[in-house]
Each structure stands twice: as structure tokens, then as C-alpha cells.
Write a protein that binds this DNA or RNA. Structure first.
Length: 299
DNA sequence: ACGGATTCCTGATGGC
DNA sequence: TGCCATCAGGAATCCG
């Protein structure tokens, strides 16, 4: 499931291939993959927003892959945002290379070494490719609630900010009441911090010695600082390993990541803890399977 | 303000 | 072998 490290890896492998190319055409075998700023699933409206624009830079925000576009003349051309959800892939393919069941194909211009196709495929079809207009209007990315409400980047925030946002997620600390939510629910909440999913939440909680169902407001500053350090360490390491390939995830060149070889929690229910040997348990927290070590992790 | 259920999807897996 | 049930999960939405 593409989370922050996987999307970061896709952005890094995609950028050198697509930057400075023009979008020449949009084909959508699965029209429901496309969304325009106004919320419609309309190929013509999507084409209007992106065809003739240049991909200036490729970026990431949380789990969103961002293609920043440039209009003729060099000014802001809006943004394409791809949310891969569970099984989405974004691939850079040579013309004629046929991916399995593409949902969307962007045909890109030749920079001198041949053209390129940017392909969005996604077996489970939960993902979406959104096109936004420039300028901050109602069809701009800034007005998209999901984007607007994203919390800070985990690798670009302070331990203090993490503690504040996790202890007082709703009231922003103003009324001083501590959160009764479970810590894992908050790690998964994209408005608290952006980019963590089920895999990295479990991995960070194990490394921090905190149970996924611990009430956030009951955790000491010291333990929350340890959790934040674990979040950063796990994400940094996973990026260095090009993400985790459980089954579907691949980078823009179709290559798998390697961090799945370093899982200590995710998917290890019933197996022995790599630190203490106790049998790992699984619970449902925030609707997700959550695996933890009953000896190493406490509430 | 929180948890839980439901929806969207399809492939993998396991029991019989 | 084949059939069916179950599970996986990010986020929106509704309900209590």
C-alpha cells in the first residue's frame, strides 16, 4: 500500500523521466479514475486542464504524488495529484510498452530521446488522478478539502509539534483537554500528520514500545518523543530502501522496494517478536489490523 | 469527540 | 479441481 516512502520513491524515479515534457494526450480506459477540481469524473474536462501543459516538477505531499504543471508562457499551469490508495501504480513507459489494464495514459512529448507514456494502473480501482486549475479558485488544489486539511510532513516537523498535534488533535490545544483517541488512529489520521498508513504506523509503534490501542492523552512527553523519533527513523529507512513491496507496489520503473524485508510488526501476527521472542498479537484498531508485541509494547 | 460499520474494488488464500 | 467465504485497506460518510 503506497504510503509516504512509496510515493516518495515513485516521485524520485518518475521525476527525471517526465520533467519538462509536455502532456500531449489523455486516454482513459477507466474514466472513473479521473477527477477534476470541481469533483466531476469527466475526461474532456480533465483534458482541458492538462493537455498542452508541461510537467515542470514532480513532488509529493503526504501520500499524494504531485505533478506541477506549467502553462504555455511559463506561468502556473495547475497540478495533477494522484492518490494511489491500495494498489495504484504510476509508471513511466516507452511508447508501445503496454501495461496491464491501464486506467489512464498520459502521452508525453519527446525531449530528444523519444516520447514517453505516464501510465496510471490500479487493479482495485480505489485510486484517483485529480486535475486542478492554477490560481487558487474553486477548482484549484488549495481548495480541495483533502489537500487543504493535510497535517505536516512527518520528516519536516518538530517533536514538539508532533506531541501537540497528537495530544490535542481536535481542539488544537486551546481547551487543554487531552485526546482520548487511540494513538494508532491519530498516526493514521492524515490531518494530524500526512503520509502514514497501516504498515508504518505498526512499525513505528513497535520501535517505540507503545501499543496501538494506547490512549494518546495518557502517553508521557518522553514516550511521544520516542514515538516521533521512531516515525522519522522508520520513514527515513523505508525511503532509503525504496519503499515496501508487499505485492502491488512498484516504483515508476516497475522495480520493487526492499523495506518489507525489515518489517518487525506488520503482517507478523502469530510469529515471534524479533526482540524478545514473545508471540506477536493482532488487534483491530481504527478499523485496521494492528500487530504488536505484548511484551515489548505497553499502553 | 470518539468508535464502529459501510462502501468502494479485486486478487489471494483457505477450507471443504 | 472448483466453489465459496473471508480478508486486505485509505478515506468518505453516516450513525450512535
Amino acid at each position: 500500500m503506497p504510503e509516504l516512502p512509496e510515493v516518495e520513491t515513485i516521485a524520485r524515479t518518475l521525476a527525471p523521466d517526465v520533467e519538462s515534457r509536455l502532456i500531449l494526450a489523455v486516454d482513459a480506459p477507466d474514466q472513473s479514475a479521473l477527477v477534476t477540481g470541481s469533483g466531476a469524473s469527466d475526461v474532456e474536462a480533465f483534458r482541458q486542464l492538462v493537455v498542452g501543459r508541461r510537467i515542470a516538477t514532480v513532488g509529493r505531499r503526504g501520500k499524494l504524488l504531485l505533478l506541477h504543471l506549467q502553462a504555455p508562457g511559463g506561468h502556473d499551469g495547475g497540478t495533477i495529484a494522484v492518490h494511489l490508495r491500495m494498489t495504484g501504480r504510476v509508471l513511466a513507459l516507452a511508447p508501445g510498452e503496454a501495461p496491464v489494464r491501464p486506467r489512464v495514459i498520459l502521452t508525453l512529448s519527446d525531449r530528444g530521446e523519444g516520447g514517453l507514456q505516464l501510465v496510471f494502473s490500479d487493479v482495485r480501482r480505489f485510486g484517483r488522478m485529480h486535475a486542478f486549475a492554477p490560481g487558487g479558485g474553486s477548482d484549484s488544489i488549495e481548495r480541495w478539502p483533502f489537500y487543504r486539511d493535510l497535517g505536516p510532513e512527518p520528516l519536516a516537523m518538530s517533536a514538539l509539534e508532533f506531541r501537540q498535534r497528537v495530544l490535542y488533535p481536535g481542539a488544537k490545544g486551546q481547551d487543554g483537554r487531552k485526546s482520548k483517541a487511540r494513538i494508532k488512529a491519530l498516526l493514521l489520521d492524515q490531518t494530524v500528520l500526512a503520509g502514514i498508513g497501516n504498515i508504518y504506523a505498526d512499525e513505528a509503534l513497535l520501535r517505540a514500545g507503545i501499543r496501538p490501542d494506547a490512549v494518546a492523552g495518557g502517553l508521557s512527553a518522553r514516550r511521544l518523543d520516542r514515538l516521533f523519533a521512531a516515525v522519522q527513523a522508520v520513514l527515513t529507512r523505508a525511503i532509503a530502501e525504496n519503499g515496501s513491496s508487499i505485492r502491488d507496489y512498484r516504483d515508476a520503473h516497475g522495480d520493487a522496494g526492499a523495506f518489507q524485508n525489515h518489517f518487525r510488526a506488520y503482517g507478523r501476527g502469530g510469529e515471534n517478536c524479533l526482540d524478545c521472542g514473545a508471540v506477536m498479537r493482532s488487534l483491530r484498531v481504527a478499523g485496521r489490523t494492528s500487530t504488536f508485541c505484548p511484551r515489548c509494547q505497553t499502553a
